[in-house]
Design a protein around this nucleic acid. Structure first.
Length: 562
RNA sequence: GCCCUCGUAGUUCAAUGGACAGAAUGCGAACUUGCGGAGUUUGUGAUAGAGGUUCGACUCCUCUCGAGGGCACCA
């Protein structure tokens, strides 16, 4: 990567790490550094030592002391050759590290709500990005299949549905349960528990029974799990999400006692008001509970066991948690606890704390029944996309089956892109029209641009030949494209480093915009000369390739026609 | 009460301490005898407020105002 080479040159001359950026204004070159100002060195002298390097057309000093680098046309044209040669590998790397990423993690016995959309989509994109950069990735769906909530559910289920029922009759009821019914029971429990606090105790005792292996509790729990997994599979299929393993919280039951014993032995856990807690004397962190006063475990206990298991099984270099920001404190406590236990440095962990999706009026809450079901959103997205295909000129010539497929790709693509194109940290206000936006800075715009490229290449019967692009005169639009397309590999590295797929979105949107402008102004197939035609087709093929690579990282499909 | 995150055009988002704050959408005006009009061009319009650090601040620090989240028996 040319950026690294510039950094190396500057290091040799100044002995310092330079920050190198792409100036917003093309007049300021392709790369720029402010090292002279930062290190109080003579910019002109540094520039003089570099200016003869064949990588650059010129190196100049401008403004208050910026050193600007201008790449040669040969380099810019060579990028096209490189893209066409490396194809779907362009932008990737071979880093040989291991990542465990914890994402999606829907809760059993609840519908797949829109609240889990961000975790699922961003998590999968991060997985794809790291894998593309050569990491071995393990995607773990840490299902919310354990905890007091099941005590609540079992209590309510017994009270409302299973009262005095047994044997076959009971099994039938459990088999016929639906997610919607379970959701209603859950909401009802919280409504009633507000008036009758005793219900909380009863629910907790049911969870306790579940932990102890009570037959009836286990039976009901299993029915809920089976039902939920079926539901989730449907959503994952629609979203094209492939998660490597889904161990879930219940998987770690057998390891909890060991973790607690270890914490006690290492004098990290102490008794307090009948419960077992971890204190953080050095940090300004509130204490965290690993054992309730009734002896039941908590979320933290299970997460500790999970980490222990993951460290041992995969020896990862990095463990990512794609989980909402409301759990910020929990993860801070968790990572510190891991360090106190001397299992690993807390730098090995990172919580990609995404903002929540909320209504204008406030937070979504399953407890209060204020949720939006993800499936509903996805179906609506597909419906709207299909409607546009019917109306659009561009849809002609597609068979009925193709239209169905394209509608799905476009609708789902729009929902995914809407999420991925924003930085993860901010909250998202749920807005139907925005989430289903099919114009402007949207997934369909990129899919459209890709399909357009494919259409041109098809008409021209273009075949990629491994040939060096001849040096030709470039118009402004062509030059603009060449001056950013080579940044793609850098963008992917940045996206990985900052856990920010939105950087990839920014980049390809800009690229697509420039290509569409070029497209309207200059003929490709009927270019002025045969050399120009060859070049413009190669450029089109390269753009298509980069768009496709980027979309595939984002988990968005790129139909050939739409 | 304490802690965390965030305030950028009417709306939704960008901008590793850098050069004139960039888009999308909305509204107004244009572009099709050219390969896909889900497109392109153009007008409009913003850093919550007050200090400070810096050659340079949307970005860092302090305070004020506003929004959201969290703070031991939910996860």
């Amino acid at each position: 990567m040319i950026r690294n080479e510039i950094a190396k040159l500057l290091r040799e001359i100044t002995g310092k790490e330079a920050r190198i950026e792409h100036p917003a204004d093309a007049g300021h070159g392709d790369y720029s550094t402010n090292i002279a100002m930062e290190a109080k060195l003579d910019a002109k002298e540094i520039a003089r030592k570099i200016e003869d390097n064949p990588m650059f057309e010129k190196v100049e000093v401008a403004g208050p002391g910026f050193i600007n680098f201008f790449l040669t046309k040969e380099f810019l044209l060579d990028t096209i050759t490189q893209i066409l040669r490396q194809k779907e590998k362009y932008g990737g790397a071979e880093q040989g590290k291991t990542l465990v990423i914890d994402y999606s993690a829907p809760n059993i016995a609840k519908p797949f709500g829109i609240g889990h959309l961000r975790s699922t989509i961003i998590g999968q994109a991060l997985y794809n990005i790291y894998e593309f950069l050569g990491w071995q990735c393990i995607g773990d769906n840490h299902l919310g299949d354990w905890g007091t909530q099941f005590g609540e559910l079992i209590y309510q289920l017994k009270k409302d549905k299973l009262k005095d029922k047994a044997g076959k009759e009971k099994n039938k009821i459990l088999e016929d349960l639906t997610i919607e019914e379970l959701e209603k029971l859950y909401v009802k429990f919280h409504e009633e528990a507000e008036k009758t606090p005793k219900m909380g105790e009863e629910a907790r005792s049911w969870f306790k029974k579940l932990e102890k292996g009570d037959k009836e509790a286990k039976e009901i729990w299993q029915a809920c799990v089976d039902l939920s997994l079926k539901e989730f599979d449907r959503i994952y299929k629609l979203l094209a999400i492939k998660i490597d393993c889904a161990l879930g919280e219940s998987f770690y039951q057998g390891m909890l006692k060991k973790v607690i014993d270890e914490a006690i032995k290492k004098k990290i856990a102490t008794k307090s008001q009948g419960a077992l807690i971890i204190k953080y004397p050095q940090e300004k962190l509130p204490p965290a509970m690993i054992l309730k006063s009734d002896g039941a475990t908590t979320y933290l206990t299970r997460d500790l066991a999970t980490i222990k298991y993951r460290l041992k099984k995969w020896k990862p270099d990095l463990i990512l948690y794609e989980v909402g920001a409301e759990q910020y404190l929990h993860f801070k406590q968790l990572f510190w606890a891991v360090e106190l236990l001397r299992w690993a440095k807390r730098e090995k962990f990172f919580h990609v704390a995404h903002g929540l999706i909320r209504f204008k009026e406030g937070k979504l809450s399953t407890r209060k029944g204020r949720t939006i079901h993800l499936e509903e959103v996805l179906k609506e997205a597909i419906k709207r996309a299909r409607k546009i295909i019917e109306q659009s000129e561009t849809g002609r010539g597609l068979s009925k089956e193709e239209k169905e497929k394209v509608g799905e790709a476009v609708g789902i693509g729009a929902v995914k892109y809407n999420d991925l194109s924003q930085h993860y940290s901010g909250d998202i206000i749920f807005d139907w029209d925005k989430i289903l936006n099919l114009k402007g800075n949207s997934g369909p715009y990129l899919q459209y641009t890709f399909a357009r490229c494919q259409s041109v290449l098809r008409k021209a019967e273009y075949k990629v030949k491994d040939e060096k692009i001849k040096s030709i005169d470039l118009n402004k639009e062509e030059e603009d494209i060449l001056r950013i397309i080579y940044e793609f590999p850098e963008v992917i590295e940045e996206a990985a480093k900052n856990f920010s797929p939105n950087l990839i979105c920014n980049f390809i949107f800009g690229l697509a915009q420039r290509y569409n402008l070029f497209y309207t102004l200059h003929p490709i197939i009927k270019a002025e000369t045969p050399e120009l035609k060859v070049f413009r087709l190669a450029l089109t093929a390269a753009i298509a390739q980069v768009l496709k690579n980027a979309l595939s990282l984002l988990g968005i499909s790129a139909p050939e026609k739409m």
